[in-house]
Amino acid sequence: MKWMQFLTPVKSKDFNETKQMISDHDPDEITILDVRQPGEYKDSHIPGAVLIPLAELSDRAAELDPDKPTLVY
């Protein structure tokens, strides 16, 4: 497990920056990661988002493509 990756500072994006990033990339060029609970995801989520609840992220990190930019919410 590459646990140090979770301690690496990342830049936060506001709504407009996020919206622009999503519109600037094809869906297969970016990962939109939803780390909320399944019920929250079911109620509403960004189209194309992948659900991996935060509590499961360390066990399921291999499901993410490390070569793609990832937006996490």
Rank of each mutant, 00 (worst) to 15 (best):
residue 15 F to S: 03
residue 40 E to R: 02
residue 6 F to G: 07
residue 28 D to N: 14
residue 57 L to G: 05
residue 33 L to M: 11
residue 51 L to P: 01
residue 23 S to H: 10
residue 57 L to K: 03
residue 37 Q to C: 01
residue 41 Y to Q: 09
residue 58 S to N: 14
residue 56 E to H: 13
residue 27 P to R: 08
residue 15 F to D: 05
residue 66 P to L: 12
residue 31 T to H: 06
residue 15 F to R: 13
residue 72 V to D: 05
residue 10 V to C: 13
residue 11 K to S: 14
residue 60 R to Y: 08
residue 14 D to F: 02
residue 18 T to E: 04
residue 47 P to W: 08
residue 62 A to F: 07
residue 6 F to D: 04
residue 71 L to F: 06
residue 29 E to R: 07
residue 40 E to Q: 14
residue 67 D to M: 10
residue 17 E to I: 07
residue 44 S to G: 14
residue 18 T to W: 11
residue 45 H to V: 00
residue 33 L to T: 08
residue 62 A to K: 09
residue 60 R to P: 10
residue 38 P to E: 03
residue 26 D to N: 14
residue 73 Y to P: 04
residue 33 L to Q: 11
residue 47 P to V: 00
residue 14 D to T: 07
residue 65 D to V: 05
residue 55 A to N: 12
residue 54 L to S: 01
residue 18 T to S: 05
residue 51 L to H: 02
residue 15 F to T: 14
residue 70 T to H: 01
residue 52 I to F: 03
residue 71 L to T: 05
residue 68 K to A: 08
residue 50 V to F: 13
residue 28 D to Q: 14
residue 36 R to E: 10
residue 57 L to P: 05
residue 17 E to N: 00
residue 8 T to Q: 15
residue 59 D to K: 12
residue 49 A to Y: 07
residue 54 L to G: 06
residue 37 Q to S: 10
residue 4 M to P: 00
residue 14 D to W: 03
residue 21 M to E: 15
residue 43 D to K: 13
residue 4 M to I: 13
residue 26 D to W: 02
residue 23 S to F: 13
residue 5 Q to C: 14
residue 43 D to V: 04
residue 36 R to N: 08
residue 41 Y to P: 10
residue 13 K to F: 12
residue 2 K to P: 13
residue 51 L to M: 05
residue 30 I to G: 10
residue 58 S to H: 15
residue 56 E to L: 10
residue 16 N to M: 14
residue 15 F to Y: 15
residue 37 Q to W: 07
residue 46 I to W: 04
residue 28 D to V: 03
residue 39 G to H: 11
residue 15 F to K: 11
residue 18 T to I: 10
residue 2 K to R: 08
residue 30 I to H: 09
residue 46 I to M: 02
residue 25 H to E: 04
residue 28 D to Y: 03
residue 7 L to R: 07
residue 25 H to F: 14
residue 63 E to F: 09
residue 55 A to L: 14
residue 6 F to W: 09
residue 63 E to M: 00
residue 38 P to K: 01
residue 3 W to F: 15
residue 32 I to W: 05
residue 30 I to Q: 03
residue 2 K to Y: 11
residue 24 D to W: 09
residue 10 V to E: 08
residue 67 D to T: 10
residue 63 E to S: 02
residue 49 A to W: 02
residue 45 H to G: 01
residue 54 L to R: 03
residue 36 R to D: 06
residue 59 D to F: 08
residue 7 L to D: 06
residue 8 T to M: 15
residue 38 P to W: 04
residue 72 V to C: 02
residue 61 A to D: 10
residue 61 A to C: 06
residue 66 P to V: 12
residue 28 D to T: 07
residue 16 N to E: 13
residue 13 K to M: 14
residue 61 A to V: 14
residue 29 E to W: 02
residue 61 A to E: 10
residue 46 I to N: 02
residue 7 L to E: 04
residue 16 N to P: 08
residue 54 L to H: 03
residue 52 I to G: 08
residue 1 M to I: 07
residue 3 W to G: 11
residue 44 S to Y: 03
residue 41 Y to S: 09
residue 51 L to Q: 00
residue 45 H to Q: 13
residue 63 E to N: 03
